[in-house]
Write a protein that binds this DNA or RNA. Structure first.
Lengths: 223, 223
DNA sequence: GTCTATAAAGGGATAGAC
DNA sequence: GTCTATCCCTTTATAGAC
């Protein structure tokens, strides 16, 4: 059990050397590739060092241990992910259009190779590093939920939707977007949604959502 | 990379010894515990042998390799899971009641420790053993979908629901049941849904579902 | 900080006796 | 089939020179 993880990992997952140094970047990049491609257990520090073009001792000079490096990677990826989340700023576009566009971008994001990879590696190690899962959940699903909720609350206030509980509505909308596509991609990496299915799924989700939450008799100017 | 997996694994994941033998059962049981608790990479054959109370050579006498043993475990668990899926047989109970009960059992099932564990270990190794992911998806989500779809089609034929596309309706219903609870449990093993949330979520899902698919003006005899 | 070389430990898998 | 003992390899991590 070489890759058993003792605790919640070192609290400082920072490189010991200068943060922006060239080698540090090379190591982080190589580690990201290896960890997301092969997972924690199947990635050796030798392989990381080789891919980064440095010696193994250099890797250890920058990161105390393998777990330390892993935590640094995950935190780094979470920051990237959070920045890449689709927004929904256009308040004047018809709600249906915004929601469809949002769903499309959300699904494309969720099922991109990078996001699936980070999900996989987190799920795999979550039992031994619970803190990482929480970090990812906050940076990903929770952040997304907050953004959508704010948007839904805003258009509700403007009377474009009738929604008592924006938190519930957000959960429902995102769940309808996802369907089982995300889980299926995680379980079967060779599976990809058939062409057109993403659009069909988002359209069906928005249609269902609006049947519930659209105001009683609005002039339908969304299509 | 000792735990890199070359191919789709041996096609026969059967023990070489008699199937029902006591030692075989002990080994399978020990391996299930270790794999689901620690994942593939972090589980050593030594540990399995020790927990099973046999020697390592005996383990190898029953299963050609570590991957072989892993595949056998996953297949075994999938059969167990499929048998444990909640059914929906009572055709005369009001639809709302059946759906609420179904959702409750579905969520309890999805978030049981055993199901989460097998999901985790599959997601972790899916990149290297894609066949396993497909097997689990067929045994789990796909099988569940088929059952619900058959039920929804049946009650639709009896006029208790108005639904053009039972496949779509099934996807929507299950997605609403899950929300983000499953993913959150996978990412953060220490997180559990707050008491009452499961019921609230299923009730909200059924309410939304029926607002869409209930017949126009039925005598509401479900509550 | 960075390298080469190596220590120390653990892993999967097998030989050979019974 | 089952055990004990062991082979052989990879892994993490470090020592010591520069």
């Amino acid at each position: 059990m070489t890759d058993r993880i003792s605790e919640a990992g070192d609290s400082d997952a920072q490189p010991r050397a200068a943060r922006g140094s060239v080698k540090t970047t090379q190591i982080l990049d190589a580690a990201r590739q290896m960890f997301t491609a092969n997972g924690f257990g199947a990635t050796s520090m030798d392989a990381v060092a080789r891919l980064a073009g440095v010696s193994k001792a250099t890797v250890y000079a920058h990161f105390h241990s393998k777990e330390n490096l892993f935590v640094a990677i995950v935190q780094h990826e979470c920051r990237r992910l959070e920045r890449a989340l689709p927004g929904s700023e256009d308040i004047d576009t018809p709600v249906a259009v915004t929601l469809r566009r949002l769903g499309h971008r959300y699904l494309a994001f969720l099922m991109s190779a990078e996001v699936l990879a980070i999900h996989r590696v987190i799920v795999a190690e979550a039992a031994r590093l619970p803190a990482l899962g929480r970090i990812l959940f906050q940076a990903g699903p929770a952040a997304m939920r907050t953004r959508i909720e704010a948007y839904l609350a805003r258009v509700s206030m403007r009377g474009q939707l009738v929604m008592e509980d924006p938190a519930l509505g957000t959960q429902q909308l995102l769940a309808l977007f996802r369907g089982d596509m995300q889980l299926r991609c995680l379980l079967d990496p060779e599976w990809r949604p058939p062409p057109g299915d993403v659009r069909r799924q988002t359209d069906a989700a928005v249609a269902m959502f609006l049947k519930i939450y659209a105001p009683p008799a609005p002039p339908d100017n969304s299509r």
